Every structure is written in C-alpha cells, then in structure tokens.
Simulated scan of single mutants.
Amino acid sequence: MSLFGKKPAAEVEKRPDGLDRLPPGQYLTKKWPILSYERTPSGLPSDWKLKISGLVEQPFELTWEEFLALPHTTFTSDFHCVTSWSRYDNTWEGIHIREILQRAKPLPNAHFVMAHSWTGYTTNMPLKDLDDDDVMIVLKHDGQPLEADHGGPVRLLVPKLYAYKSAKWLDGLEFLEKDRPGFWEQRGYHNHADPWKEERFW
C-alpha cells in the first residue's frame, strides 16, 4: 500500500477484459448510498403491470403475479454510480432480461430501448446494452427483498453502465428505432454512461 492509500499498479484488481475492476474516478464503499431525484413511492401500484411495447413482434403486459411466475436467476456483479461511488460483489435475484426478450422478440429495426418507471422516470440505452448476460429485472439484493429507496420492489439492472441507467420502480420497456434521451440524459448526464470511459456528462 502506498503512502496515500492507493494500491500499486500490480495490486489493482482487473476484470476479465483487462480493464481495472474499479472504474476511473470511483471510490469503493460497502454501504449502498440512496440517491434519487424523485420521492420514493409508497409501494407497488395496485394496478402495476410490466408493459413491453414498441418495435417487438409480441407486445405484452404482465401483472405482478404473472411477472413473479417467470423463471428467476441469481448472479453477482459490481455496481457503479455516476456520483463516484462503487460497490463490489452485489448479489442480485430476479428475472433475466432474456426471459422478456425471448417473449417480446424485438424487430430488426429495434436498436434502442427506453425504460419506464411508474414515477415517470425514463432512461434510454442501445438494445445491445440491454440484451446482455448481466442484465436483469431485480427483486432482491444480497438475499433480501429490494428496498423501496433502492428501487424496490422491482428495478432494472444494467451493471456495466452507471446506475442511472438501472431504472428504479420499473414498469415498462419500450423498443425504439431511434434513440431518445431519458430523464437524466435530457438534463446533461451522458447518453451512454460507460464507467470505464468516465461518460458522466454530455
């Protein structure tokens, strides 16, 4: 360990792709800070449905009970916030995104996705970033039901991008031909949000 607490280069953890595990400009925390522009909802709306719309062969809606009946999966990933904190080794449980994509069948001209929350929040991303091995719709974190302040009972998880792309209080995915900025993207946050490129702002 160096005088200022930074690890020597040889000790810096690497990802399988060779990049540093901790993205540039980030610091590690064992806590999970609570950051939201919106007020935390009081609970799941009684009429909640997951709405899959836009450029798909099979648009559909799922009630909460139908959504919970989908196959569940568990995996562990790091999580990075645009405000500079990172948290390692989060264990998530929920529905893998491909359970949704296999049912929806995005059309060839679907290149982007807008995630919608029942609070009105939106965030956009390329379909290729959504359709990936590490993306899921989360119900539990570290073995416990996802707390409301962290987006519970249901949020999107796209851990390779800054956390504002992992929409809290999820209730819809809209498939688009052309990109359309979401809530924070309209307010100056980066449209793509890759932590290893420090894509924090436009």
Rank of each mutant, 00 (worst) to 15 (best):
Lys128Cys: 09
Leu70Lys: 08
Ala167Ile: 15
Glu66Pro: 07
Ala104Ile: 03
Asp89Pro: 11
His80Cys: 08
Leu70Gln: 05
Gly152Lys: 08
Lys168Met: 08
Pro108Arg: 04
Val138Met: 06
Thr123Phe: 02
Ser84Asn: 14
Pro106Glu: 07
Lys51Trp: 10
Leu44Cys: 10
Ser53Pro: 01
His96Phe: 01
Pro159Asp: 13
Trp85Gln: 01
Leu50His: 03
Val82Met: 08
Ala148Cys: 08
Asp129Cys: 13
Trp85Arg: 00
Leu68Ala: 10
Thr63Ala: 02
Ser117Lys: 04
Ile97Trp: 04
Ser46Arg: 14
His96Ala: 00
Gly151Arg: 06
Ile95Ala: 01
Ser166Glu: 10
Leu127Trp: 02
Pro126Thr: 15
Thr73Ile: 15
His141Pro: 06
Ala115Trp: 03
Tyr37Leu: 15
Phe60Cys: 06
Ser46Val: 15
Pro106Phe: 04
Val138Ile: 09
Pro59Phe: 11
Ala69Val: 07
Lys49Met: 13
Leu101Gly: 05
Asp131Met: 02
Ala163Met: 12
Asn109Gln: 10
Arg155Pro: 01
Phe60Gln: 01
Trp169Gln: 04
Tyr88Cys: 10
Asp132Gly: 11
Gly54Pro: 08
Asn124Asp: 14
Asp132Cys: 10
Lys105Val: 05
Asn124His: 14
Gly120Leu: 11
Val113Pro: 05
Val135Phe: 05
Ser86Ile: 03
Glu93Pro: 09
Gly120Pro: 12
Thr73Trp: 06
Ser42Val: 15
Pro153Tyr: 04
Arg87Gly: 07
Cys81Ile: 06
Asp149Cys: 11
Arg98Thr: 07
Ile95Glu: 03
Pro45Arg: 07
Ile34Glu: 15
Lys168Val: 09
Ser166Arg: 09
